[in-house]
């Protein structure tokens, strides 16, 4: 059980039977008045945002979330199949539930899966993943167009801007939080 004074950015609580994460938080207290805890929260299942002001005595249940390490197996159209690495249970998530992570997901990759009341609601990938470049325009030496990046396509189909020296077949480290190029990986 949490009280309003525990609220802070990143805290996960349960409201009306749904898990919420606090994404913005401000403490206020008008002169001689009560402590007020003003929160912006995101429903971790629907993504809907909620803005609420709480008082010191307000209480919250913990979000009751659990995490398990899962291995990504394969997809069939919109259905993405994972296996629990300890129990070998298999679980399916839809493309919508996987969201932008879809761009960085490779067969056999280990991910952390988030469960609310035994229901899988989200996955988180390693912060950095290495992916191969499947398509890149050659680097034209002496190119004076002044651009210092070029578009390439990765093995997952994801397209991004990278430095001009990147070539087809290179492996790149990508930051899965931002989707940005980090560095070229030496084999």
């Amino acid at each position: 059980m949490y009280t309003a004074s525990d609220l802070r950015k990143g805290l996960k609580v349960q409201i009306d039977g749904a898990p919420y994460i606090v994404i913005d938080f401000e403490f206020s207290k008008p002169g001689k008045g009560q402590s007020l805890y003003r929160c912006k929260m995101r429903n971790m299942i629907t993504g809907n945002q909620l803005v609420q002001t709480y008082r010191s005595n307000d209480k919250f249940d913990e979000a009751g979330l659990e995490e398990s390490t899962m291995q990504y197996l394969y997809n069939q159209g919109d259905e993405f199949h994972f296996m629990n690495t300890e129990t070998y249970d298999q679980i399916m998530l839809t493309a919508e539930q996987i969201g932008d992570n879809i761009h960085f997901l490779l067969d056999n990759m280990e991910v952390e899966m988030l469960f609310f009341n035994d229901q899988a609601i989200d996955i988180s990938l390693p912060i950095f993943v290495d992916l191969a470049v499947t398509q890149a325009d050659p680097w034209v030496k002496g190119d004076t167009s002044g651009t210092d990046t070029k578009p390439v396509t990765l093995e997952t189909g994801y397209e991004l801007q990278v430095p001009p020296f990147v070539e087809e077949g290179d492996r790149l480290q990508i930051d899965t939080r931002t989707g940005a190029y980090v560095t070229r990986v030496k084999e």
Binding site: S5, E26, F27, S28, K29, S35, S56
Partner: peptide, 8 residues
Amino acid sequence: RGERGRLH
């Protein structure tokens, strides 16, 4: 006690 924030 307990008053912590941008203005506290």
